[in-house]
Every structure is written in C-alpha cells, then in structure tokens.
Amino acid sequence: MKKDIYIRRRPKSLTSVPTHYCAGCGHGIVHRLIAEVVDELGIREKTIGIAPVGCAVLAYFYFNFDVTEAAHGRCAAVATGIKRVLPDRIVFSYQGDGDLAAIGLAETLHAANRGENITVVFVNNTVYGMTGGQMAPTTLTGQKTATSPCGRDPVTMGPPLRMCELLNTLDRPYHIERVALDSPAGVRKAKAALLKAFRVQLENKGYSFVEILASCPTHQRVNPAQALKFVGEQMAAEFPPAVFREEGRVAHA
C-alpha cells in the first residue's frame, strides 16, 4: 500500500525539470528508478553520477544530486577517477549502448576487470538515439537503422554484442544482471536489480553492472505499445534477462 502512495510523488533525487525524452522512451523510467533507489538507500547526499554522451547527456538536469558529464565512452574512466579519490561516495555511470559497448568498450571492460567499486547502469535500446537512429553494437540481426538500411547483416556488421555475457567472463565483477523494461513486472525487477547493484557498492563489495533493455519507439520504428513488445520479445530473445553474477559468483553463463 505504501508503494502506491509513493508513485504519486516525485523522489527527492529527481528534480522537477521535465525530461526531453520522446514519448514511450525507457530513459525516464530508468531515471525514476535510480532516484527511488538512491532515496531509499539514503545516499542522495553522497551520490555522484556520470552522464554519458547520447540521449541521456542531459541527465544532470534531472537528477537532484551531483552529476558530471563525461566524454563519449569514457564514463568508466571518469568513474574510476572519482571513486579512487572519494572511496566513501557512491559513484555510478549511466550509459547507452553506443557509449558503453562501442566507443567506450575498452574503458567498460577494464574498469570491470579492475573490479572498481562503482555501479554501471547500461540502458540498451539497440540504437543510437541522439544522432538519429544509427546502428549500435546491440542492434539486432536484421534490424533496420539509419546505417543498416537493409537490416543488420552479421557477415559485414557483426552480430549484436552481449555485454552481460562478455563481462561475465571476467573475474572481478561482483554483480551482473540484465532486466527488461517491457511490463510493470519488468519495471519492478529493474528496480530490484538497481537496488541490489547500489547496495553492493555501498557495502564495498565491488563492481556492479545492470543492463536494462529499454524501448525507443522513435528509432525502433514502432509505436510505444509495440516497442514494449519489441523489448520483451525480440530483444529479450537476443539478450535474455537473468542474474549473471551474484555475490561475486557466476550464477548464469
């Protein structure tokens, strides 16, 4: 019952600035979930966020705590630079698929491999949104984008990159989880995953990574309702939601 009342007011960790996201976009939900988690853990005054380059570039306007920008792909390096000198603050990066899995893949992997005590929130919607719907590393095979107009051809463009599976090959990550924002149940699971991930950092256990499959009706080229279906069916088939790493141990390969 308490939760229902909660939905009607804004978390303290969100500002009142209206977001610029398209109708049906997953980013707004992820922002809210992060804000709720930060509130519930009582860490708003010691949280430092890192906004990416991509659709969430303006995240610093929406979060009501300290946020910095980072150059495209470099969030994990910036997070390392902050967390190493302020180990008692909670540092998280918020990144899209192009930022995290293409231009920033090296930083992503190496921060995870060092076991940096940070939280990485990875919003995967299979496309570059900000620049106009180009192919991302996570674009599905056959999916049409501005730069794969005939559909992604795995022979010349490579198949989609599965980040949770990739990170799960490393020794140091402590928590790796993938969730899908395709339904109210999915949203609840996403919040639980974020809560877990932030808690892992709060308890100084190490690197936590949450991949959130999200809708982008604008560039997934469907209406918002169909976009949720796209997330829950096509995306989830390629990127199965699961807890990959739990308490530092491989839970799902």
Partner: peptide
C-alpha cells in the same frame, strides 16, 4: 594516494578528469 596504470591514454586523461571533478589534484 592513487596510482592506476590506465588501459590507454584516453582512459588516463579521463581518469584525470574524474579526479579533477572530485576536487582533487591529478
């Protein structure tokens, strides 16, 4: 104090960015 051998010069300068953001000398 902090010493990190970065994975690249790109990562190194952006770690510097992070530490500067945190108000420390890098």
């Amino acid at each position: 104090r902090v010493f990190v051998q970065a994975e690249s010069e790109l990562a190194a300068i952006n770690m510097v960015f992070g530490t500067a953001v945190a108000g420390k000398r890098a």
